[in-house]
Design a protein around this nucleic acid. Structure first.
Lengths: 128, 128
DNA sequence: ATTTGTTCTTACCTAAAGGTAAGCTAATTA
DNA sequence: TAATTAGCTTACCTTTAGGTAAGAACAAAT
């Protein structure tokens, strides 16, 4: 996404560049855990295409969020890691994930309380 | 966006439903400040279309994030406010905005430090 | 020679998000 | 009567994001 233009003056849109994409948070969160190779990231993010992974990593690298280290060997080996700047995003990402997780938990509870049709409840009561 | 499907099992994608859209954060952030009418939101968010504002508010309402109160008067009056559940998103949003703001500030500093061509610096030094 | 593994690149396509413009409803005002 | 206001709704279109599949480069292994 090198063509993404910086929307000057708006912190929200600025942050959204790094956090708004479908795979961005997951990529960065995994890099927080450990420096990773392309193939590792690809395999730990089920469903991501190599195209998109490449795009995002390139964007992050050009933005100074991620560092790419190229090794001179074969098969080729590249490692990606968070820069100090990238690390500043982790508390934000953690906040987002925590909210997502707890909200999912609440929905599960709410769903299990409301998803039982009345006739099923009557059946269960009829069995006692 | 009532057709948005919940990606079960992934807190990231779940949170992204409410935070990933272009206007979502700004809408919610403004509602944190005060309960607002449709027209107020429209005017405080320069550039947003009524269509998109309507969509987002409807999605938030159906998700339990926002409460819509309809008044029986003319012109018609509707007020939107955050629910307790919606309020749980504010610390997250604040975190995002703060990061965006500080990162923008850093870019401004970095830009002013690197955007002066060497020949201009030489000129300035030549004037001393 | 072929296969393998890694890291992309490219062409093409689909889906989703957002935008523009016009229109609707209902009461009130000019 | 026409205009105004608020809060949408609808049709159509453009842009953006993501996806599929094939291909490329390079060395090493079979």
């Amino acid at each position: 996404m090198p063509s993404k233009e910086l929307y000057i003056g708006c912190p929200v849109q600025h942050a959204r560049q790094y956090l708004g994409g479908k795979w961005q948070i997951a990529i960065l969160w995994h890099l927080k855990m450990q420096c990773s190779r392309f193939v590792e990231l690809r395999d730990v993010l089920p469903g991501i295409s190599e195209k998109v992974l490449t795009q995002e990593l390139r964007f992050f690298e050009s933005s100074g969020i991620v560092k790419k280290e190229v090794f001179n060997c074969s098969p080729q080996k590249v490692e990606y890691s968070l820069t100090p700047k990238g690390l500043t995003l982790i508390p934000v990402i953690k906040s987002i994930i925590q909210w997502g997780y707890s909200n999912l938990q609440e929905e599960k509870v709410t769903r299990s309380m409301t998803s039982t049709p009345v006739d099923v409840i009557d059946e269960l009561e009829g069995m006692r």
